[in-house]
Design a protein around this nucleic acid. Structure first.
Lengths: 236, 236
DNA sequence: AAGTTTGCTGCGGGAACCCGCAACAGGTCT
DNA sequence: AGACCTGTTGCGGGTTCCCGCAGCAAACTT
């Protein structure tokens, strides 16, 4: 079996190569890409069906690359491997994973055994496996058990790129007042104004809280901007 | 000479150890800390005067640790060593570096030679050395040569944590209108509304742009929040 | 010395935002 | 069927924000 390793940090790359050789004897060849663009090219060229993918890379990040890979060959198995337990990454991934594709998400800080387990589960067995740390680390200060639903998350993204209520309403096909209701829910769930003595600018505060709690990260902002630009181009 | 290496990624740590041994024969002992808190403890205990410090760490980041170290022993020489060329880091550092202290900032992607050079320049010679990549990478889309001055940056931080105009004015000792003038300058320099077709929420947009251009990062938000909490505690 | 620039400030108004109140639709429970 | 919950929408008003206009003082120019 051929495996493509996408990772721009050489130390992590060589550690992972070693790990692959150790954990998966059925791997015959390991290919290596330094960024998302290379990954897309190599996967196409070599008919890769098993990938270990870093998320944060300089030129083209793991989620974008994965989207392309899955568009071209939905049965590709991808194990995402990241330093950060950002919910934004997880949402980004689950938004693009095709029906019945195998994928996984492991932290780079995970112990050796768990990583090996994940490699086998995802790349060989075709299972889905997500490091539970990712959920655990969240919701430190945000009101607990308050998960954003998809429509709230969509509004959060629109808020984050700076759209006004009216624009969000247009884009998402809601009335102005509904958008504002979503925003109220967001302010509540993100803990805006909770136990604050002074009044704050709620919109900015919501973005701030979303970032600090890792519900969003900067890459998610960039991705949201691209989506919006694309949508707004088609609409005129 | 004793050197303290503060780094929570084991691969990077062992690479740096090797690099230190190779580049600086005058180093007699290398100590190792996994995070900022450990670093403060060990430096105090061992009278460390030369430090190589990662910036992004789990429990206590490099800038906070450096502040403590420099408070206790201002002549400490610190080489910061980071994956990211965020202007926010650089501002954070220059805000806390004492008069005539030696420090440096090198990217982890820097070639071997440049790293060795920086190690020697900062730790042995006591010079100041900043990787020029850091400035180069900035200002992709922000209006060029538009550097924020200190008071603008301060207002940006206040905006970022969600303060309203009136509060910012109180905190910074400016009139309301002056704060708003600063905000106008910020909107301009950050490229808010530049070549946009639709009207946006300027405050949110400003924060978004500051993050995307790496003038701010999430850690800077967290730090600003702590500063503010502290300030607001003393004021009542 | 008179003119010019630059930064700080108040005033005022239009737009956006926050949000309570109430009406209404569709689904669920008793 | 009637009571009830939940999500959507309009209305209205108090607040904050954005920003043009203008006055003022200090610094700088000619």
């Amino acid at each position: 079996m051929k495996v493509l390793l996408v990772e721009d940090d050489q130390f992590h790359a060589s550690w992972m190569e070693e790990m692959l050789a150790d954990a998966l004897p059925e791997v015959s060849e390991i290919f290596h890409a330094q960024n998302g663009a290379e990954a897309e090219r190599e996967a196409r060229l070599l008919s890769i069906q098993a990938v270990v993918m870093d998320l944060r890379m300089a030129t083209r990040n793991g989620i974008e690359a994965a989207r392309t890979l899955w568009q071209e060959r939905p049965e590709t198995r991808i194990l995402f491997w990241s330093n950060y337990a950002d919910e934004a990454y997880l949402r980004g991934i689950t938004a693009i994973v095709p029906e019945d594709s195998a994928y996984g998400y492991v932290l780079k800080t995970a112990p050796r055994d768990r990583l090996k387990l994940a490699l086998r589960a995802v790349l060989i067995e075709g299972q889905i496996m997500v490091d539970r740390e990712i959920h655990r680390l969240q919701r430190r200060q945000a009101t607990p058990w308050a998960t954003l639903d998809d429509s709230e998350f969509a509004v959060l993204l629109d808020l984050a790129i700076g759209l006004q209520d009216k624009r969000i309403a247009e884009r998402r096909g809601m009335s102005l007042r509904t958008v504002q209701n979503r925003l109220l829910a967001l302010y509540d769930k993100l803990g805006v104004d909770a136990e604050e003595t002074e009044p704050l600018n709620k919109r900015v505060r919501a973005l701030n809280r979303a970032l600090v709690t890792r519900i969003l990260n900067i890459e998610a902002l960039e991705a949201a901007q691209r989506d919006f630009d694309q949508w707004s181009a088609t609409r005129r």
